[in-house]
Design a protein around this nucleic acid. Structure first.
Length: 273
DNA sequence: AAGAAGTCCTGGGCGC
DNA sequence: TGCGCCCAGGACTTCT
């Protein structure tokens, strides 16, 4: 599923869109367009020049010449792939953005959870999943002190805190499990009982797994592909996610699976304490 | 007010 | 081969 490293990979693949014009939009499943109303959406997008491609948390943002922004959230199974304009939409394609120079951007999404918003200049916060987002975890603003203060009001399991976008922007189930393994922490440890050194290890682990995920162009467990339609490489080096019953790469013990904060969670009972 | 539970949605994997 | 059942999960809403 597209988390920060996957969306960042797509962003990098789509940077050539800067300077290009959206000549037409075809919406195949109107439910994907959350705002504004469908007709107005088409009218406001058509003819716009793209000035930049940004990412914030798990959101992919196309900045338009008017100052408006086209904001995509891929949720679980969304894809954004650049194709030749003549490419027929697939079974799960929900919207096609036709571009100049004979190309098109296909938004596909099997489970229909993905969203598209068009917002006016400076109104990013109108998208609820963008309001209250933590600082970017790979930026200098995401300091250890900031992370400590974000955890200070928490009482539940650490895994739940990691999945909260107000604590770690862009974190999802895969990288949360990987970060906890790297930090040697059981996912169900209550936040208040974490020692200072453990929080620091976790802070470091979060940044390390996200950076490694980007370096390997994301994790393709099931649906994810990059902006060119190609799978990523991080699934080859996963320590725990999706490896229930398989031997821990560090100690050889069989990995266990449990439910934490409502999410399937895989961990090593020996290496994670 | 943080956290748990229910909701959305569909394909894939399972048992029989 | 095919049917029904259950699961996966991000983020919003509802309830406690």
């Amino acid at each position: 599923m597209p988390e920060l490293p996957e969306v960042e990979t797509i962003r990098r693949d789509l940077t050539p869109l800067a300077g290009r014009t959206i000549t037409d939009v075809e919406v195949l499943w109107p439910g994907a367009i959350k705002a504004p109303a469908l007709r107005e959406f088409g009218e406001r997008v058509r003819g716009q020049r793209i000035t930049g491609v940004e990412r914030r948390g798990k959101h992919l943002i196309l900045c338009l010449a008017s100052g408006e922004e086209l904001i995509f959230h891929l949720r679980l199974t969304g894809r954004l792939v650049l194709t030749p304009a003549e490419q027929e939409p697939g079974r799960h394609t929900r919207a096609v953005f036709f571009l100049d120079e004979g190309e098109a951007l296909h938004f596909a999404d099997v489970r229909k959870f993905g969203t598209i918003h068009l917002v006016k200049a400076g109104e990013r916060q109108a998208v609820s999943s963008l309001a209250g987002l933590a600082p970017e975890p790979l930026s200098e603003e995401f300091t250890l002190d900031w992370f400590r203060s974000a955890l200070a009001r928490r009482r539940g399991p650490i895994k739940g805190a990691l999945l909260d976008q107000a604590v770690v922007a862009g974190m999802g189930n895969i990288y949360a499990d990987e970060a906890l393994f790297r930090a040697g922490l059981r996912p169900d440890r209550p936040v208040p009982e974490l020692a200072s050194a453990e929080v620091e290890r976790l802070w470091e682990a979060i940044r390390a797994v996200l950076a490694e995920g980007i370096r390997l162009r994301g994790t393709s467990v099931r649906d994810y592909v990059d902006g060119r339609g190609e799978p990523g490489g991080f699934q080859k080096v996963l320590s725990v996610y999706g490896r229930k019953g398989q031997p821990c790469r560090r100690c050889g013990a069989p990995l266990q699976r449990m439910r934490v904060a409502g999410r399937g969670t895989t961990f090593c009972p020996h290496c994670q304490r």
